[in-house]
Amino acid sequence: MKLSWNLGGLLSVAVIGVTCLLVLPLVVDIFVLLQLTLYLAFGILALSLGFVWGQGGIFSFGQTAFFGLGGYTYAVVAFNMSESTLPLIAGMLVPVAFAFLLGYFMFYGRISTIYLAVMTLTVTLIFYTFMGHTAGYEYSIGRAHLGGFNGMPSIPPINLPGYPERMAFPEDNFVITGAALLLIYFGLRALLASRFGRVVVAIRENESRAEMLGYDIRLYKMVTFGIGGGIAGVSGILFANWNAYISPTVFELALSAQIIIWVVVGGRGTLIGPVLGAIGLGYLSIELGTQRTVDVNLVLGAILLIFVLAVPQGLLPTARFLALRYLPWARPPEDLVTVAHARESANND
């Protein structure tokens, strides 16, 4: 019974996701499709924090470091290649390697939560400061010129592996980005259902208990952090490809702030919530950016404040909770309700 309820949720995500991927390029115009591609790329970024923070309990201020690193690596390698397969692989591996390195440094050093947040923030700022400093021509890697605050323009687009002349059109980018989002989402769901995923959640719930039971929490946290870094890297590649441009602004505090807002609004502890948060708030920011009466920061700040004070669980968990309580037909078998309530009260402790 429990399995079928979970499967229902997964199936509906799969059906809705695949339908959108196939139908949207045919019905909406190219401008909207371009915007949607960006939101989906940000959705992947939100998913990375949703996993690292929401499931692993590691509050990282620095997902943008891996995001930017992925984008920059893709760009640098792509400039030196005539084909995009190797750049894609490098753009994923470099952030993963860096996340493992940083994770080793932090988790094996037993840095506490708040200090970890400050450290990841610091790393992001190092990238921001350093990348802004690379305007001189001595900062070139092969044919790629880093360009300081001017960034790297006209990044080569993704092409069909093995066919350099078959480059991705905007419609293709939409499908690629959406497919990556769905793949990563289901990959994470599978991971969380595995033994590894259960230990990760157990560590989030109670670190000392997990450690007393014999799990090496340092190792599990490092791997969690590494996976999150890789996902953020993928998002960075897709962003660089979408924009054909990357600059140090990807390391700015503003973007780190937004990711956290997406996760808080969508719902910590869920995976689909952060994605919905990214898409919804991404849309809202763009809409607000086109008018001049209300400042974007003002609205984002107000939304975050209201959520922290009034809806600390985020939209999706709150909606689920309300549905379980007031809609009899949405109620799963009795044992699941008990589990859900138990989890709810455990979270409130």
């Binding site: 400042d295 920061n297 003002l298 609205v299 984002l300 700040g301 975050l304 404040l305």
Partner: peptide
């Protein structure tokens, strides 16, 4: 804001971040 959140370090951090955005927005306006 803050007095509702004592002892919840992560929530104070998020709430003060929200305030930071809010102040920037107000002063820009």
């Amino acid at each position: 804001v803050i007095r509702f959140l004592y002892g919840r370090m992560m929530d104070t951090l998020l709430a003060t971040w929200a305030l930071s955005l809010l102040f920037i927005g107000v002063m820009t306006t």
